[in-house]
């Protein structure tokens, strides 16, 4: 039996539901050495800003139980270099490219959205309102429903590309933010960005990261992410890209059952560069074993009142 892996999230058409997460995949080139990126549903490239950014000092990385803290600070070449140097290279990858954008003001988000071409390999824009590692902007926009809505509204006016709002988990009520971006022009919601955390060096008695705090990712955050996907699925109609500690196909299935139409693999790339491919294969095998013709049938099953898997046995 052939399983249909194609996935459509609003205007974003993917050959399968497995993407890579922004900030863990550079501009794709680093992992193109391991496999053909055209096998993926798509890639989300490193977040770009209007101006180039040198990012935070080191140490930028600290390991935690089943997780890592990072405080890279949005180091990136800036919009101009992205358009002239990186975009032409991305065109050659033959995969859907999602460009993650970050601004320090509403105007910057608007400028970024306006400058990114609609007729290129760019399949969607991911509006990052959730970076925890920069002083202004970033997460400040994503922790208040009103500002989150404003960012989406100004961005929406500048582009016809599908807009993905990337939400921060560092909020009391994720549903309020999700509703705000839905009402202001978002087509898709992606969640979660990293959870704010920190570690302290016992020898020096000082924070381990140069930036003091950083974003926690990896398997440690997965239950938080699954919970938030579940909550947002109940509250909004937008399709969801689920992410947060996905390392194997079982994790991906869990997110889809919670309500994600697609998933992103992030930190797992660092440990197992082949993780996204293994997840695609595992998802397909799981659907076949469960008797699903399409991976879409998994989405949101955990919300059903009846036992989801009794029904198929009849």
């Amino acid at each position: 039996m052939k399983v249909d892996l194609t996935t459509r999230l609003a205007g974003l058409q993917l050959k399968n539901p497995v993407l890579t997460a922004s900030g863990t995949f550079g501009f794709g080139e680093e992992y193109a050495r391991f496999y053909d990126l055209a096998l993926l549903g798509g890639i989300t490239v490193k977040g770009i800003t209007l101006e180039p950014r040198i990012g935070n000092p080191v140490p930028r990385i600290a390991e935690t139980p089943s997780g890592i803290l990072n405080a890279v600070g949005l180091e990136n070449p800036g919009l101009e270099a992205f358009l002239s140097t990186y975009l032409p290279r991305l065109e050659k990858l033959k995969t859907a490219v999602i460009v993650n954008i970050s601004g320090f003001s509403l105007e910057e988000y608007a400028k970024l959205a306006a400058a990114l071409p609609e007729n290129s390999c760019i399949a969607a824009l991911e509006v990052n309102i959730s970076c925890p590692n920069i002083k202004d902007g970033g997460m400040a926009f994503g922790t208040d429903p009103q500002s989150a809505g404003e960012v989406l509204a100004v961005t929406r006016k500048q582009t016809k590309l599908p807009l993905i709002a990337k939400l921060s988990p560092n909020v009391t009520d994720i549903v309020a933010i999700a509703k705000a971006v839905e009402e202001n022009g978002a087509d898709i919601i992606s969640l979660i960005n990293t959870l704010l955390g920190m570690r302290i060096d016992l020898d020096r008695g000082r924070p381990l990261l140069a930036n003091t705090m950083g974003g926690l990712s990896g398997p440690a955050v997965r239950p938080v992410a699954v919970r938030m996907v579940y909550q947002v699925y109940q509250a909004v109609r937008l399709p969801i890209i689920g992410m947060g500690g996905i390392s194997c196909w079982q994790d991906a299935v869990e997110f889809m059952l919670a309500g994600a139409s697609a998933v992103s693999v992030g930190t797992a790339n660092f440990i197992n560069p082949l993780a996204p491919l293994e997840i695609i294969n595992g998802l397909e095998a799981y659907c076949r074993q469960k008797g699903y013709h399409s991976v879409k049938e998994l989405v949101g099953l955990a919300h059903r009142k009846e036992e989801p898997f009794d029904e198929e046995k009849r």
């Binding site: 900030g23 680093e30 990012g55 930028r60 990385i61 990072n70 890279v72 660092f270």
Partner: peptide
Amino acid sequence: ERMACGVGACLGCVCTVKTATGHKRRRVCA
């Protein structure tokens, strides 16, 4: 340097170098 991916994707392990156009980051792993 403290390293995560080891292949240049995560920008975790940078150092700073002098270039003609000012200070730039370089990835220790790449």
